[in-house]
Amino acid sequence: MKFLGRRLLHSGVILLAISFFAFLLLRSAPGDYFDAMRMNPRVSAETVENLRAQYGMNHSFLVRYADWMGSLAKGDMGISLAYGTPVGPLLWPRARNTLMLTGSAMILSWMLAVPLGVWSAAAKGGWLDRICSLFTSTLLVIPDLLVFLLLLLMAVRTGWLPSGGMTSGNFADLAVWQKAGDLALHFALPALGLAIVSLPLLLRHVRSAMVEVLDSPFIRAARGHGIPRSRILWRFALPAASNPLISLFGLSIATMLSASLIVEVILSWPGLGPLIIQAILSRDLNVVIGVVMLSSVFLIAGNLIADVLLFVSDPRIRVE
């Protein structure tokens, strides 16, 4: 509990620092949401100035930051200038959609990476290992964007999977099980895309961690006792190789989140991706900071889970 308390405190400090620097950086960027209005001859300069004053944009940096922190405490995270509503309620459903997508993609990619990496390492130099190596090398040199576009092309050409959105137009009229099926079909393409782009790195890490462990004397000793190969792989080697993989799990959340922003835009997934792109283009500062903060929370939570898992799985960390 002491360990968890310390890590939570640490996470809180990091989030505070991220919010401060994100605010500072975005404030330092030239222009604001009302710049486009100034170009409109039908909107007077006075109106623009009044609007700026109304939204507190004439205040100093520290006052605006303090105001934002106050609204964060209420769960609002400021007002979106583009939508005219508090940012919080705007973010939550989109954050849920992004989490559902990245969560399922992570599960899918780890479920593929672990067995494939373990088998590749066990049969080092064999045909499965060579196929995996070729597959990962190929995928690593293909940009994520191209993978998503190819999947989109495949969906459009074949019609097997919906090419965008989270639900069909008639979703409200469907029965419960039909709704689940419709949601799963819409999930398939973006989740598969995310899993494909994150798989090579995970697979290579699982393989190299396993190769190192499989060469350890304690594995040789286990073989000497006649312990079956499958038990050696899953009961002995994988737990021993899990430390770098658990750390990688925390880090892979960052990769997955950044990739999800692209896939959401390309496949029209109603997550944080399209929202932040629009917010950046229109300089909707509070929305951008809100998305940055939420992404940071996801990333820190992922790393916190990884730290706790490491603490539970590795006696050496507990001793330290």
């Binding site: 004397p217 304690f218 286990a222 006792h225 006649g226 079956p228 038990r231 002995f236 021993a240 006696p315």
Partner: peptide, 30 residues
């Protein structure tokens, strides 16, 4: 089971994730 080997470095020859009892019981289990 009739031929056993002891390695030079016991730290790497023993599974650090298992207790001494588990390490000893594992060969018997199999």
């Amino acid at each position: 089971r009739r031929i056993q080997l002891v390695f030079q470095d016991p730290a790497s020859a023993l599974n650090s994730g298992m207790t001494a009892a588990e390490i000893l019981e594992e060969p018997l289990l199999i």
